[in-house]
């Protein structure tokens, strides 16, 4: 059964159709890439899946539940996690507290008031930071990290609650080639526990880590298949050679 099933999704801004009948299916444990030229609707689709805005038409089913108009916190509680395109760590909190905030999100209010999970979550927080090479920076303010480290921290925060599906919007934006390579290495092991949808302009990066690709163009699905199938699709080649 599909973990995520998007059917006939449309999103209009006045006369502009940012998404025009998009279908997308993602199975558990797969890494799925969204590619396409600028303005093709990749980020709009990701935001609609995350609940940042509601679609004009169509349905989004996640883990068997219709979440088309569910607010973001409900989707998060079902196991959907998002890393924003623009880095959204909390700069005035410590690196450690950023991950604590991600992990305690499903605690009851009374338990938060009594700080009941603070000690219990410590090993998981340090484990998450260790995995993303940030354990030594735990007590530093998140705003003091380099851009690449902030991207890793945000991925660590998104992964810490052990989501079923992680949405990554341009996770290597602004990174050095070395940081991109490391990011790929850091993401690879999560496949065992989590599916991934990734929007990325770096085609080499996305081909290396994704099992399947969906190509969007002008709000429509131009192609969908394995990385090899998409790479050999003449329509995809055409838009990438003529318009990118």
């Amino acid at each position: 059964m599909a973990l995520l099933d998007v059917t006939g999704l449309t999103k209009s801004y006045g006369p502009l159709r940012a998404l025009d009948g998009v279908d997308l299916t993602v199975r558990a444990g797969t890494f799925h890439g969204l590619i396409g030229p600028n303005g093709s609707g990749k980020s709009t689709l990701l935001k609609a899946i995350a609940g940042a805005h509601f679609p004009t038409g169509g349905t989004i089913r996640f883990d068997g539940a219709d979440v088309t108009t569910a607010p973001p916190f409900q989707r998060a509680r079902l196991g959907l996690s998002l890393k924003f395109q623009i880095t959204a760590v909390l700069p005035e909190l410590s690196v450690y507290d950023n991950v604590l905030l991600a992990l305690q999100a499903h605690d009851r209010t009374i338990d938060l008031l009594r700080s009941r999970s603070r000690a219990r979550l410590a090993p998981r927080i340090m484990d998450a930071l260790d995995r993303f090479r940030l354990a030594d920076r735990a007590d530093d303010l998140a705003g003091e990290l380099s851009h690449g480290e902030q991207q890793w921290l945000e991925i660590a925060m998104a992964l810490a609650p052990e989501p079923k599906l992680l949405l990554l919007d341009e996770p290597t934006g602004g990174m050095s080639p070395e940081e991109r390579r490391v990011t790929g290495e850091l993401l690879a092991p999560i496949k065992a526990s989590c599916a991934l949808i990734i929007v990325e302009h770096d085609l080499d990066f996305i081909k290396n880590i994704c099992d399947r690709l969906t190509v969007l163009d002008q709000g429509r699905v131009l192609g969908d298949g394995t990385t090899d199938e998409i790479e050999n699709d003449p329509r995809v080649r055409e838009i990438y050679t003529s318009r990118v």
Partner: peptide, 11 residues
């Protein structure tokens, strides 16, 4: 600092 970020955590 960022209420949207917290909403996407599930708050």
């Amino acid at each position: 600092q960022n209420e949207e970020r917290l909403a996407f955590f599930g708050y």
